[in-house]
């Protein structure tokens, strides 16, 4: 399923590649072609280092089709140190111990599978690290 689409997104999924505006320095993830701050179209690729803090999170008790086998799982909004917010699953975690502001880092994990013989999609998730890291 969605072979071309998942292949096309490999730089984002595996390396958090976004864009940076050559005019005003604003950084974007997901990448975009027009700067929201100065409307410049002079944007170049930028790889984010994957560190940030938890802006918000929630534990899902009911899942969209294709994610039921992962229940319950935690998703979050991560505010990267370099600016943008990224949404992803928060993994390797006890949800009861999570707090807004918790330091997190990017890891690569399986996002979902399309059936027993279908494509497996990999990409970024985030996991807690000791505060200060």
């Amino acid at each position: 399923m969605d072979l071309a689409r998942n292949w096309r997104l490999k730089d984002q999924r595996f390396r958090l590649e976004g864009t940076v505006c050559a005019e005003c320095g604003a950084k974007f993830f997901p990448p975009r072609q027009v700067c929201t701050e100065c409307k410049s179209t002079n944007l170049t690729p930028h790889e984010f280092d994957g560190h940030g803090e938890l802006y918000s999170f929630t534990t899902l008790r009911s899942a969209p089709m294709g994610y039921e086998d992962q229940l319950p799982y935690v998703v979050g909004m991560v505010k990267l140190d370099e600016g943008p917010i990224v949404e992803a699953q928060i993994t390797d975690v006890n949800p009861d111990a999570l707090k807004i502001g918790q330091r997190v880092e990017m890891v690569t994990r399986k996002l979902r599978a399309y059936g027993d013989d279908g494509v497996i999609v990999y990409g970024y998730k985030f996991r807690p690290v000791a505060n200060g890291a």
């Binding site: 997901p30 929630t58 969209p64 994610y67 998703v75 949404e87 992803a88 996002l111 999609v121 990409g123």
Partner: peptide, 13 residues
């Protein structure tokens, strides 16, 4: 779809 839904983030989430 490319940056929210693929992570299993439902509309409720």
């Amino acid at each position: 779809g490319d940056y929210e839904t693929i992570h299993g983030i439902s509309f409720v989430a």
